[in-house]
């Protein structure tokens, strides 16, 4: 019996974390796993901190991932990586999009955006890969493809074949954006392998 694996996708409402989790979910489903995804809708989607959970294995019970449980955390923004660091399992992998989006308390001056977030995370001993997903997304054709670039990075660390990922993309993105998203995925995959 294989152990349940846990993945978290964290970011800022509006960054497309939901689509990323759905692509991941359909790839895992096609491999015959039991899969659960937990999403956040409603008020948090309006620019707040958002998190989706993806779990798979022979039998998954809880749909959520708790502190110290995530095998992978895919963070769409630096500060969110810091926020959710405690959810990473010992030996888990953290992938961070090196993008800064100021939360409102920082904009109003009520709080400071910490300096050197990535260096500090690394100093804590976490396995971390940082990627400039926004540049890669723009290279693929749209800043909106940050989510698919990051799924590409995650894919480079998981033992799932390319055709499974391509089918998952086809099932979840609109046909007119498919080619752009395939390019975004490939750029992310290459960045992860570097």
């Amino acid at each position: 019996m294989s152990e349940t694996k846990s993945i978290m996708i964290v970011g800022v409402g509006g960054q497309g974390t939901l689509l990323a989790s759905r692509i991941l979910g359909s790839a895992l489903l096609s491999l015959g796993h039991d899969v659960k995804l937990s999403e956040v809708h409603g008020m948090s989607q309006r620019g707040g901190s958002v998190v989706t959970y993806v779990k798979y294995g022979d039998k998954v019970y809880s749909p959520i991932v708790d502190r110290g449980e995530a095998d992978y955390i895919l963070s769409f923004e630096r500060l969110e990586a810091a926020r959710w660091l405690g959810w990473l399992k010992k030996g888990g992998e953290l992938i961070v999009n090196d993008q800064r989006i100021n939360p409102m308390p920082v904009i109003t001056g009520a709080a400071q955006y910490p300096d050197g977030v990535l260096e500090k995370i690394r100093a804590l001993g976490a396995n971390m890969l940082d990627v400039d997903a926004l540049s890669l997304a723009l290279e693929a054709g749209s800043s909106k493809a940050v989510n698919v670039v990051l799924i590409g990075v995650l894919a480079s660390m998981m033992d799932i074949s390319e055709d499974v990922w391509m089918r998952a993309l086809e099932d979840n993105v609109k046909p007119k954006f498919l080619e752009m998203n395939k390019k975004a995925f490939a750029l992310g995959y290459a960045a992860g392998k570097r």
Partner: peptide
Amino acid sequence: KPAVDFSEAVPARPP
């Protein structure tokens, strides 16, 4: 479960 938190306060991100 063992968990390592970020070394300083993380500003909240309300909607």
